[in-house]
C-alpha cells in the first residue's frame, strides 16, 4: 500500500478567471470547503477541497487567468 500523502495541491479543472480567493495561508479547511471562486463557461464555480487540512500556500489572486492544471492552493493534510 502506498503511503498516505501529507500534502495536496488543488488545481484548476479548466481555463478560468479567478473571481475571489476565500482562504489565506494558515487557514484550516474541512473537506468540501470553498477555497477559490472561479468564473468560466459564464458560471461562478466554487473550487472545493477534497480533504481537510491547513492552507500552506495560495498561488493565485483575484483577476488572474488560470489554465487547466494550474495550482490554486496547496494544503498540508491533517
Amino acid at each position: 500500500m502506498a503511503r498516505e500523502p501529507r500534502s495536496a495541491d488543488i488545481v484548476a479543472e479548466m481555463v478560468a478567471n479567478v473571481m475571489t480567493v476565500t482562504v489565506e495561508p494558515g487557514d484550516t479547511v474541512a473537506a468540501g470547503d470553498t477555497v477559490v471562486l472561479l468564473e468560466s463557461m459564464k458560471m461562478e464555480i466554487p473550487v472545493l477541497t477534497e480533504h481537510p487540512g491547513t492552507v500552506s500556500a495560495v498561488k493565485v489572486s483575484s483577476g488572474d487567468v488560470v489554465q487547466e492544471g494550474d495550482i490554486l492552493v496547496s494544503l498540508d493534510l491533517s
Binding site: E13, M14, S40, M41, K42, M43, I45, P46, L48
Partner: peptide, 8 residues
C-alpha cells in the same frame, strides 16, 4: 453537474 467544469 455545474459544480464540475460548470456542468459543460
Amino acid at each position: 453537474n455545474p459544480l464540475r467544469l460548470g456542468g459543460c
